[in-house]
């Protein structure tokens, strides 16, 4: 996964050298992260075969499985997004970060990663149950992460421009709300997905 991110960042570096425009810098970063999220999370339910699923099903409550998966995926995404941010700044430079409120930007990166994980966990489960791999996952997931992506793009752009916390806090509040609602929905719906 890390390899994927590093190579993606390197390709971007080769394609656009010396990127200084904050808007483009920001957009490119989120595109890399979006595809990384799809790649990483699509595997979270794929690797299980029927037997293991049945075993888990008899052993524990499905809700605890989906919550555990969501938390695990969220942590993966946080680590992944921070690492890719690191490589991204290493390769593409920090010119765009000059005026940025760094703390806010990192926060938006983490919230965005958690948000992607929250939405895509249930989608990955649906795609895996439908017996269709990454293709279906992308088709199902893309329109659902698009709202999240737009919100987080706006928030991180504001953070890059160094806008005060009092302005951006509504975005972060909205993102947290979106995450909570998504996880709640996944918690409610997942048992039906597992029933067979």
């Amino acid at each position: 996964m890390l390899l994927y991110v590093v190579s993606a960042v390197y390709v971007c570096y080769l394609a656009v050298k010396g990127l200084s425009l904050p808007a483009t810098w920001n957009a490119l970063y989120w595109i890399i992260l979006l595809f990384a999220a799809f790649n990483a999370l699509s595997r979270s339910f794929q690797r299980e075969d029927g037997g293991r699923q049945l075993y888990l099903y008899t052993l524990v409550d499905p809700r605890s499985v989906v919550v555990a998966r969501s938390v695990y995926n969220a942590l993966t995404m946080v680590v992944l997004s921070l690492l890719s941010l690191l490589f991204y700044t290493l390769f593409l430079g920090t010119e765009a970060l000059e005026q940025a409120a760094i703390g806010q930007f990192v926060l938006s990166v983490m919230l965005g990663g958690i948000g992607f994980a929250a939405v895509l966990t249930l989608i990955a489960a649906i795609a895996a149950r439908a017996g269709n791999g990454l293709g279906l996952m992308a088709i199902l997931g893309f329109p659902l992460v698009l709202p999240m992506l737009l919100a987080v793009l706006r928030a991180s752009k504001l953070a890059l421009d160094g806008v005060a916390w009092s302005v951006t806090s509504t975005y972060f509040g909205g993102l947290v709300l979106l995450d909570i609602i998504t996880v709640t929905l996944a918690w409610l719906l997942f048992p039906y997905l597992w029933r067979d």
Binding site: L122, I126, L144, P147, L178, A186, L193
Partner: peptide
């Protein structure tokens, strides 16, 4: 079942 789950999930996010 799968379609219903996706429908509910998607609609809620859409409303948001």
């Amino acid at each position: 079942r799968l379609a219903a789950i996706y429908n509910i999930f998607a609609f809620m996010l859409l409303v948001l």
